[in-house]
Write a protein that binds this DNA or RNA. Structure first.
Lengths: 214, 214, 214, 214
DNA sequence: TATGAATGAGTCTTCATTCAT
DNA sequence: AATGAATGAAGACTCATTCAT
């Protein structure tokens, strides 16, 4: 009722609320990993979280909002995977390789998170994903890619080219992952990782080594 | 009375029936293009086709069967697009380029057909797509790709390499298309076609010119 | 068009029609035995008969009418089973026993025909079973029971008592058969045939031997 | 705050919920009595109960579950009817008679509950009646019969015989009720109750009088 | 005579969401 | 802060039956 000093009490409330939101999210994550997108309906999430369905709506305005947070968390883990194995004092080429693999292997190991991305990024409008949210998600994804772009620039690629190559790398990885995920890759008798490695080799070879030109 | 296995009457009937099946398919196509996969439920399709829902079941045993036909038709159009601009008396590199663009441009112009392919190829089991159908659809897709593989071999690439490169090309195209389709490409400030062209250029450059064999 | 002499031509037509009706009925019977009542829908019957569904309606005005004929045929077989093992020159008690077993064993071996009877006799009205048909079916059933009644009378029971005992015998048999058919008899750890035999023994014992009065 | 496992609040809620479940059941009962099993579909039940169809699913997980409760209640009423008129200080023969009539008269007055029993007890598997439920329903039925078995034993019948005779009594009652219910009894010009009485008389007469203990 | 086309009513069930308490 | 109750729209599919040809 009283709008309050806006500090101690409100902060505590916020903290508690955040925690619960997190717990709901964790539950959603578990369900989502086990059952996939279709199985992750409100009821299932609520049950897993130990809440009522309607309680969830206190913390999340819609199912899609949960999904969005799920995707945000997923993108954070992706980021961790990309940056995880990297060390600053390695040759840029190695760093790029490591990061790219961080990316590719993450989705290879967690194909469901790929679904999530497609689901959410596709029909923006109907899902009620507001532009803000969209931008934030895009940003998180971008965070995982700038490292690679930097690596390419460190390898001597001009910024514009590096950005283009990063985009292409992202597209290629996505394409291969999809091939794997849908099982269509069997049709070609190929292996996802090998395919990606080949692309990566080509990419690095293509970048003119800046240091040692004769 | 005395007549070959197929009575003219039966033939006529069959023809009419086929036509109606086609008209239903067209209606489904329209709905699908306008509303997407989720909007293309039996009721909507029936309404658009001017039929009762139950009437549809005379022509299609299930929703998935309609989807499958939709995809089959889509893959046929894809094939036409791939082979359309090709001519036999062109240099292999040009042919490859033409075919690849036939592929890429088709999905660029009809992003929803991409959805369809993902939908159907993904959940094979849960959707009740029987293996036969699956195989047929796979075959249709393959038909669109063998041309490119042949072009690569004509360019001097050993068969295994050509197959690998075709797969990679397919993956790359898919990845870029997805980037475009989901709008994420704006995030990178890139253009789908340009991206794909670059890949194609790189691919052709990478293929060792067959001119120099001793 | 011409109403015809009403004889040769019409007779032939009638004969052909009867034959086809019979063939449909046979098909229905097969389906019914294999699939039960629920599985015996018009489509299935038509398929088995090599007809279109709508063709069936030329011979039978409704599904229930087919069922009725099915039941009539069933009752004929029942009759045959009841009278089959009987011979005129046997002691009445034996004859009664034989007929009663003819009845009981028939339904024990063909439980589905029991369903049919229940289904048709139950909701007379809604099923469109007209009173005539109902009477005819009742008559057929009665035909299978009069023998037993006669046996009882031959054993010295007054007509009224014999009728009552026949009714009771029929009821008892039905009750036991139902117990068997629904599996509820397991609940009691009893055997249908044994139960029925006991009843039969009691019944015969109960009938005062008419021969030996001084 | 400190309170037993079941909060008063929760208890109240439970009570209200139970009441509503009961009201739905009552509605289902009414529909079922008026329209029979086929008429008792979810929509009709919901309408009668003043609910939406989906609201029903909060209280009952499936149609069969409603049916099962309907049957359970029916069996309880049966039980009440069987035990209702009994008193402990009556001669066993009278008690048996009273109980048997409690059974017979109940179904005579409520023929539809007979249907229900057949429906549910029959197709266990296809109906999704789980074994637990099945066992519980069987138990309820058994409860109505053990009294009679006990009476028979009190009359001097060995346990095994009493069980057999109880089963036979049950079968006989069922058979006669069916005869009445389907209207076929008119065919024989008999009366259900009279028929049953006769059987009962015979049964009691058949039981060796325990009168000879000193 | 038999067909194929078409109907329309009907079945159960699921889900995201809202609201009074 | 959390609940339970309730909604309503939707969704795929089946079946007996009719009618023009």
């Amino acid at each position: 009722m009283t709008d309050a000093p806006a500090t101690p009490r409100a902060q505590r409330r916020q903290a508690v609320s955040d925690l619960k939101r997190q717990m709901i999210l964790d539950a959603a994550e578990r369900i989502f990993q086990q059952e996939g997108l279709d199985g992750a309906h409100m009821r299932a999430i609520a049950r897993e979280a130990g809440y009522t369905v309607s309680a969830l709506y206190k913390y999340y305005a819609s199912k899609e909002e949960i999904y969005a947070d799920l995707l945000a968390a997923s993108l954070d883990r992706l980021h961790a995977s990309v940056e995880g194995a990297t060390s600053a004092d390695v040759a840029p080429a190695l760093r790029l390789r490591s990061r790219a693999h961080g990316f590719f292997d993450f989705y290879l190991a967690h194909p469901r998170e790929l679904d999530l991305g497609f689901y959410l990024f596709r029909g923006l409008q109907p899902l009620g994903l507001n532009p803000q949210l969209d931008a934030r998600l895009n940003q998180r994804l971008a965070d995982s890619l700038t490292g690679m772009q930097a690596d390419m620039q460190a390898l001597g690629l001009p910024e514009a080219d590096a950005l283009r190559e990063t985009t292409a790398l992202f597209a290629h990885a996505t394409g291969v992952l999809l091939l794997v995920h849908t099982g269509r890759i069997r049709m070609f008798g190929q292996q996802g990782p090998a395919l990606f490695d080949t692309y990566l080799d080509g990419l690095i070879a293509r970048i003119p080594s800046p240091a040692s030109p004769p």
